Computed example of a mutant assay.
Amino acid sequence: MKYQHIFFDLDHTIWDFEANAKATLLDLYAQHRLTDRGIESFPLFFERYSYHNERLWDRYTKGFIKQDELRWKRMWLALLDFKIADEMLSHQMAVGFLEQLPLKNAVFPYTIEILNYLTAKNYQLHLITNGFEAVQQKKLYNAQLQGFFQKVITSEVSNSLKPNKEIFLFAMEQTGARVENSIMIGDNLDADIQGAINVGMDSVFVNHLGIQPHIPSTYMVHHLQQLESIF
């Protein structure tokens, strides 16, 4: 067996961040009565939030902004698009989002099945995630995923971010794995796949969206069940 240690990304790879974030934001939209503030359409608000969140996450992963700024500015900028300049509301929604998001439990199809399959074949499963420590642990608990992973390596604890090699080296140290017997599975080419390349590790690109990859991976799948053909 070539691989002994399998490192998964969490958000967008097995935990359906888009579905869970959308459900959480819909709750916040109702709780804060944003229709009364002039935002008549939740889909429009969600589109603006998603736009700003993607760009702020890119800045965060590149080290240009800190966690706290990411958390509240994505709300602030989305509200500002509707001419709501309310910093207090932005902070309230940011806190509410992080509190409520981990309570959602949508995962991608075949997530539980593939984790059971890999566990039964005696692979050692771990997570490497750029998410926040407490939030990621809550997600795992509420989605009933925590029992599958021996080690959860977050950017917060490792003091590094994918694709930097340091977070992968920290993961090797924490798990006792070696690059040659490990593989990274993730949906993000720039973070997961480039990160694996940076440290010399094989990788699987989980191409849920069917995009044309701009960074080469060792393997590519479009559905989690296809991992069975690799392992």
Rank of each mutant, 00 (worst) to 15 (best):
L127I: 13
L125C: 04
F7P: 00
V221R: 05
L44Q: 15
T129H: 03
N130C: 02
F168P: 00
K121R: 15
F205Q: 00
E133C: 10
S182R: 00
I114Y: 07
V206G: 01
P213D: 07
S90Q: 13
E40D: 15
M93P: 05
N53T: 11
L56D: 06
E113Y: 08
F64R: 13
E113S: 11
F64P: 03
D202C: 01
W76N: 14
H208S: 06
L34Y: 09
L26H: 14
K138I: 05
T218G: 00
I167L: 04
S229H: 13
T111N: 09
H222P: 07
R59S: 12
A143I: 11
Y123A: 07
P43A: 04
R178D: 06
E54S: 14
T61M: 07
Y141P: 02
Y110E: 15
G63I: 09
H5P: 00
N53R: 08
L89R: 02
M172A: 09
F46H: 12
V135P: 02
M220A: 08
F64E: 15
K22R: 12
L28R: 06
T154P: 04
D190N: 13
F17S: 07
T35A: 13
A85R: 06
I230T: 02
G200F: 00
K138C: 08
R33V: 05
R37L: 13
E87Q: 07
Y110M: 14
H208C: 02
E99Y: 12
S90F: 11
I193M: 00
Q67R: 15
E47G: 05
Y49K: 12
H222M: 08
L56N: 12
W72G: 10
D68S: 09
W57L: 09
L224R: 04
I65K: 07
W57Y: 08
F82Y: 12
N122I: 07
I193W: 01
R178T: 14
N207I: 10
N188V: 04
E113I: 07
S158I: 05
L115I: 09
Q92P: 07
S217I: 01
N159P: 02
L25R: 03
M184K: 00
L80H: 14
G38Q: 13
R37N: 06
S50R: 15
I185M: 01
Q124N: 11
F132Y: 11
T154L: 10
E173F: 02
I167T: 02
H12S: 14
F205A: 00
L118V: 02
D9Q: 04
Q31G: 06
K73V: 13
I167M: 04
Y51E: 13
Q31W: 06
D16A: 11
P213S: 07
I84F: 07
N20T: 08
Y219K: 02
I6L: 11
L26F: 11
G38V: 13
R33Q: 15
L89H: 03
R37V: 06
Q4G: 10
K162E: 01
Y123W: 13
L89N: 06
Q136I: 04
L161S: 12
D202Y: 00
E166T: 02
E156Q: 13
E180K: 05
Y60I: 09
N159D: 11
F132P: 03
F45P: 03
G176P: 05
M201H: 01
L161A: 08
D27M: 10
M93G: 07
E54W: 06
E156K: 04
K104C: 05
R48K: 15
L44S: 15
S182F: 00
Q144Y: 09
I211N: 09
R59P: 03
N20A: 08
